[in-house]
């Protein structure tokens, strides 16, 4: 195997772990320091859901941690990546066009890329590939 082949083979794993770590960081920040994130919850979301801003921040953080951990471990990789991608695309839409929105869009597309590639060589899912 040439160096180029090895680099190519490692790329999906690096992408998956990198995306997972980002979500884990943001998720943990929302659970540990919710006060800093309350202002980011749109009033429309609170009106539609009937939930308070602290609850929505806690839910958001929990969602990102649970599926971020699954993505990090490579457990139900495609499902986790798809849910995180959709989640991030929704946030991108809410944030709108700007520095933050463009960065969030990039993160969304990275999660989509993980979903499209699927299981890489270090995923836990490789142990369960004969489920069908």
């Amino acid at each position: 195997m040439t160096l180029s082949d090895r680099l190519k083979a490692s790329a999906p794993t690096v992408l998956r772990i990198g995306v997972a770590l980002v979500f884990l960081w943001f998720g943990s920040q929302q659970l540990m320091h919710p006060g800093s994130w309350l202002g980011f919850i749109p009033k429309s979301i609170m009106d539609i859901s009937g939930l308070t801003a602290p609850t929505l921040v806690a839910f958001n953080g929990s969602f990102e941690i649970v599926f971020g951990l699954c993505l990090l471990a490579g457990f139900f990789t495609r499902v986790s990546a798809l849910l995180l991608a959709l989640h991030m695309l929704d946030i991108t839409y809410v944030v709108g066009y700007g520095a933050t929105g463009v960065r969030d869009f990039g993160l969304s597309i990275a999660a989509v890329a993980v979903f499209l590639y699927g299981i890489d060589k270090l995923c836990l899912d490789r142990r369960f590939t004969t489920l069908d």
Partner: peptide
């Protein structure tokens, strides 16, 4: 299972001391 864990975490971290943070 993921939904249950998320609900448990949400309920845990939205307690009053967290729900009314101070700045």
């Amino acid at each position: 299972v993921a939904a249950i864990i998320i609900i448990i975490l949400t309920a845990t971290f939205r307690n009053p001391s967290v729900a009314k943070p101070t700045r």
